[in-house]
Write a protein that binds this DNA or RNA. Structure first.
Length: 429
RNA sequence: GCCGGGGUGGGGUAGUUGGUUAUCCUACGGGACUGUGGAUCCCGCGACUCGGGUUCGAAUCUCGGCCCCGGCCCCA
């Protein structure tokens, strides 16, 4: 029998886990310096939580099942819906703005490819209530700050505001179906296709012309001015653009200037109510988006009081890829500092006692468990890149001593058992 | 769901116009070596992704499944 790992899943070994853990800790540290607190939600939820948010169609891409009493459940495909649910269940009347972050795995039934797995991890933040350009800027700043802390260099933050395009479509009296179609096409970023679609649907040619111009608006801050010319006859769009402009001022105060304004970012779903942003990294193939976020009104959809929230999430696995690409040669980390080597079987108990003393003082210690010969133990210690080996042998023990061997220099020294722990603590400082 | 490229010991590979016992490196276990590591030598362990077909004979040809890689669709 040969049991395989399910498709699209991965096993992580020691070095990789260490790497992932370090990235996780870095993000945690950054999020906490901005005052965000960690939450955790269940791995599975009521299926309806996700269909309500994204439509019935997503069941095709979700792992869902019935439990033994017939409840329709689903492995979570993302975390913003569960976080909104948690807010409604536990935190509705808490003081705003409420800041939280999360880290956990999600599941999607999709074709695996580079940077896309069936079990993947997301780590992100949510700021609920108190919607303001300041809040939105803080969220974007945190995302950028995180990448800086991780040493990721080649990334682009694209920021847009859905209100601008919405204003145009609203003024043109586009019916819902047309609206949805157009937003979906814009989201794809295919100008050709947008042209085609705009010709097919009945829409004011003037609005159509403006839309074409808008989706091509990607660049430095100057394009705000250009855009304001294009949309000057549409108060709602102007308002959204001004909001964006203000947000950029604030973002610069947060110390981040390397963003791009991108008015072509769209989201098909209509609970998005303001800014949207995406972060792209180099070298990840087709899955170059490592983070996305925005301001939305999800909580109302789930039956809570109307509160807007702003959030973002990193595709953690893609982030790990990125850090690996940007990072310098990873050094092979040793797992322990000291190896306690019994010279013969008669002293193995003594060796264990000494190892335990070390461990109680926080020294990472390995002790021979399989009765190997001294030669093999030294070999093993060498492979593990251990700094010191403690040779425990009868000859030394008679004098109440052990031999401390420095594995790099090869030098060794006889040391009183009583003082060896302190000596190791000092040596390893 | 679609297109293309793949799958040989734990890892990396040779072999693929069908033909004995499937190559080499590395890792691992043991030994040469009874209180001293990285070297050397010896021994051992261990593989043709799975199933059907063609054939006297299949790792090799063929069909299908599974899985991996890249891309499309999708991306909450």
């Amino acid at each position: 029998m040969d049991i395989q790992r399910p498709r699209g899943t991965r096993d992580f070994l020691f070095e990789e886990m260490k790497e992932r853990r370090e990235i996780e800790n870095t993000l945690r540290r950054v999020f906490e310096t901005y005052g965000y607190g960690e939450i955790k939600t269940p791995l599975f939820e009521d299926l309806a939580l996700f269909t309500k948010k994204s439509g019935e169609e997503i069941t095709g891409q979700i792992y869902h099942f019935q439990d033994k009493s017939g409840r329709e459940l689903a492995l979570r495909p993302e975390l913003t819906a569960p976080v909104s649910r948690l807010y409604i269940n536990e935190l509705q009347k808490s003081p705003k703005p409420l800041k939280m972050y999360y880290f956990g795995s999600c599941f999607r039934y999709e074709r695996p490819q580079k940077g896309r797995y069936r079990q993947f991890w997301q780590m992100g933040c949510e700021l609920i209530g108190g919607k303001s350009p300041e809040s939105e800027a803080e969220i974007i700043a945190m995302a950028a700050h995180s990448l800086e802390e991780l040493g990721v260099k080649d990334f682009e933050i694209h920021i847009g505001n859905l209100g601008i395009i919405r204003g145009i479509l609203h003024q043109a009296n586009a019916p819902k179906i047309v609206y949805d179609t157009i937003m979906a096409v814009i989201d794809k970023g295919e100008v050709e296709e947008l042209l085609k679609t705009l010709n097919e649907v009945e829409i004011d040619p003037k609005a159509s012309e403006i839309l074409i111009k808008l989706v091509g608006m990607v660049g430095q801050r100057e394009i705000i001015k250009e855009t304001s010319e294009i949309i000057k006859d549409n108060p709602k769009s102007v308002e959204a653009l001004n909001e964006l402009d203000e947000l950029l001022d604030i973002l610069e105060a947060f110390g981040f200037t390397n963003y791009k304004v991108n008015l072509g970012i769209a989201r098909g779903l209509d609970y998005y109510s303001g800014i949207v942003f995406e972060i792209y990294a180099q070298g990840l193939g087709a899955q170059k988006q490592i983070s996305g976020g925005g301001t939305y009104n999800l909580i109302e959809i789930f039956g809570g009081e109307k509160v807007e929230s702003t959030g973002f999430a990193f595709g953690f696995d893609r982030l790990v890829e990125c850090v690996r690409l940007c990072g310098e040669e990873k050094t092979h980390h040793k797992t322990v500092d000291v190896y306690v080597a019994p010279v013969s079987k008669d002293v193995k108990l003594k060796a264990i006692e000494i190892a335990q003393k070390f461990r109680k003082d926080g020294i990472k210690t390995e002790v021979d468990l399989v009765g190997r010969k001294l030669k093999k133990i030294l070999n093993q210690a060498n492979n593990l890149q251990v700094d010191y080996v403690i040779l425990v042998g009868e000859r030394d023990l008679k004098e109440g001593k052990v031999t401390v061997k420095n594995m790099e220099s090869g030098e060794q020294e006889l040391v009183e058992i009583e003082s060896v722990t302190q000596m190791m603590i000092d040596l390893l400082k």
